[in-house]
């Protein structure tokens, strides 16, 4: 589905040693893939390069075998939708208006959306179970509702790949689970691929089909979550000693120092 080949990126005119992405290569072949790694590992930068917000210095990005590295933003927006980690919408647009903006890649920019775009936006809201929020100001919604509305916008964008930067940030424990379960459901129901970044290895183990472990701007391991997230890899990447547990056949990890206490 998504292939990243030898991607290099640096902010500004930095010396070679200051690259934020250092030859990143990965191949996403599953429904729900996850970038996992400590702060500053380069997850958000990699996502922004994939979406086209940042231009990599070197390397290629391919979607279903098609090179999209130099593609114009409008064509790329038809293939990849993006939900950022932080979203500050300054004006209180209604949730429906926010989702309708997801139709922008298909809209004649001087005419605005047509009736069929409005139908698609309503369908996306209904699919996420937040149709009742359509008329409410986006700024008045709770964190979890905002996240669902933005996922609805990504769905309305009708792209093959949904990229979500830390979709669980600022959410309480229940809403984290709801958001990830919803993404998994969207991926299955609409045959979309989803690439997310997470901070919690256990959530990656529970909800993702594939994990790419990042450190210092490089992908250090990639594959099935239970193969990638191990005692050794977590100690290498995070510097934390963990114990592997099995709950109903599902692998989880717990910090060893806490357990010993």
């Amino acid at each position: 589905m998504l292939e990243v080949e030898d991607l290099w990126f640096a902010y500004g005119n930095l010396a070679r040693g200051k690259y934020v992405l250092r030859g990143v290569s990965l191949r996403v072949s599953s429904r729900v893939a996850c970038l996992l790694g400590p702060n500053g590992a380069g997850k958000t930068t990699l996502m922004k390069c994939i979406v086209g917000i940042l231009k990599p210095e070197r390397g290629r990005i391919l979607l279903r075998g098609r090179d999209i590295t130099g593609m114009d933003c409008r064509s790329r927006a038809k293939l990849i939708s993006y939900v950022p980690q932080e979203f500050t919408i300054p004006f209180p647009y209604t949730a429906f208006e926010v989702v309708l903006m997801g139709r922008n890649p298909y809209v004649n920019i001087l005419q605005g959306p047509r009736a069929e775009d409005e139908v698609k936006a309503r369908e996306a809201l209904e699919a996420l179970g937040v149709g009742h929020l359509a008329g409410k100001p986006f700024t008045s919604l709770s964190g979890g509702e905002k996240r669902l509305v933005l996922i609805a916008r990504a769905l309305a964008q009708d792209a093959q790949l949904l990229v979500l930067d830390e979709p669980t940030s600022f959410l309480d424990y229940r809403n984290k689970l709801v958001a990830l379960e919803t993404l998994r459901g969207v991926s299955r129901q609409f045959s979309k691929s989803v690439l997310i970044s997470l901070h919690d290895p256990n959530l990656a183990l529970l909800f993702c089909d594939e994990v790419f472990l990042m450190r210092g701007g490089e992908v250090v391991a990639g594959g099935r979550p239970d193969e990638v997230i191990t005692r050794d890899s977590i100690r290498r990447v995070y510097g934390v000693r963990v114990r592997e547990l099995r709950v109903n056949g599902c692998k989880l990890i717990a910090p060893e120092d806490v357990l010993l206490k």
Binding site: V51, G52, I53, C73, Y82, P84, F87
Partner: peptide, 14 residues
């Protein structure tokens, strides 16, 4: 455009 540079770009606006 009012959504900010990154989101507008990701939604296909130059």
């Amino acid at each position: 455009l009012s959504l900010g540079d990154d989101e507008a770009l990701a939604l296909g606006v130059n």
